[in-house]
């Protein structure tokens, strides 16, 4: 076989094997690439860091499902660790019914880690049908929109919900969104634009480009973009002394770095093959 054919027509099974090797090896034996902290992630960290325990609760919306769990779940866990370490109370809800289980799991696990009490330090609202109607309704009354929590207990029965009526009582909203409904289709037009609530977001790497215009206009206070952003947030939480727990996103960054490099090398090889074949013609 000629070199041009060899480079231009690599069997996809070889590509799959190469990709598996570069992903798996760093997971077994981490390399420890150190990235640079982006201002977008730092801005969101700062916004949460400035919340005081006496403030009204932070609202987190789990708007993702198991498909985007590797990128967004570490963000959720890190934000919860950050909040609980600073004794900031948290309300968690979700616009994706398939993500409710992930939200509850993270909240329960991190809540136990920091010995937090349900109803006093955190509340889980779960999911309600309606999407935009839910977000708009919360702007008028959270208690009317979610009269009970995920477990069916009246919202009024929780001490931390006293005085929390609508978005005016939410100093910051963080939406971890993997698509629609998410930060740009629901939270920004209905909660931020209409009620003026401060919004920060964590998104998958593929949808990060959608968030940049809103960052520049100041509609987003900060952005955690993809696994890299999640790893940066994990490092910020660790550096500030809020957590010493295992950092899954940081560990996965080595794999992602090498996978990107492998894809780039494959593209270069493909192009070399293409140009060699074209020259011969």
């Amino acid at each position: 076989m000629k070199i041009a054919d060899l480079l231009g027509k690599i069997d996809r099974r070889i590509i799959f094997i190469v990709l598996t090797v570069v992903i798996v090896i760093p997971l077994i034996s981490p390399i420890g690439f150190v990235g640079r902290l982006s201002p977008r992630v730092h801005d969101l960290f700062k916004a949460i860091d400035e919340l005081k325990p006496s403030n009204k609760p932070l609202l987190i919306s789990v708007d993702f499902d198991p498909q985007s769990m590797p990128e967004l779940y570490p963000m959720l866990v890190s934000i919860l660790r950050h909040s609980f370490a600073r004794n900031v109370r948290v309300i968690v809800m979700g616009l994706w019914v398939t993500g409710v289980g992930l939200g509850e799991e993270a909240l329960t696990t991190v809540g136990q880690e920091y010995q937090k009490e349900y109803g006093k330090d955190y509340v889980f609202l779960g999911w309600k049908p309606g999407v935009s109607a839910v977000v708009l309704g919360m702007g008028r009354s959270i208690k009317e929109t979610f009269s009970t929590d995920y477990y069916g207990k009246p919202i009024d029965s929780f001490p931390m919900m006293a005085g929390v009526n609508n978005y005016r009582d939410i100093p910051l909203l963080v939406t971890l969104s993997a698509g629609d409904p998410g930060f740009n289709t629901v939270w920004l037009p209905y909660a931020q634009a209409r009620f003026g609530v401060r919004v920060g977001t964590g998104v998958t790497a593929v949808s990060a480009a959608d968030a940049y215009p809103y960052l520049q206009t100041g509609q987003l206070v900060g952005l955690i973009d993809g696994m890299k952003g999640a790893s940066e947030y994990e490092l910020l939480v660790e550096k500030a002394g809020y957590s010493e727990a295992f950092k899954p996103a940081s560990q996965a960054m080595d794999s992602q770095s090498l996978a990107h490099l492998a894809i780039m090398i494959l593209i270069v090889l493909g192009n070399v093959g293409y140009f060699l074949a074209r020259r011969k013609k």
Partner: peptide, 12 residues
Amino acid sequence: FIVMLGKVPLGT
């Protein structure tokens, strides 16, 4: 290429 490298620690 720029974005792929710039978005991972390897790029730094």
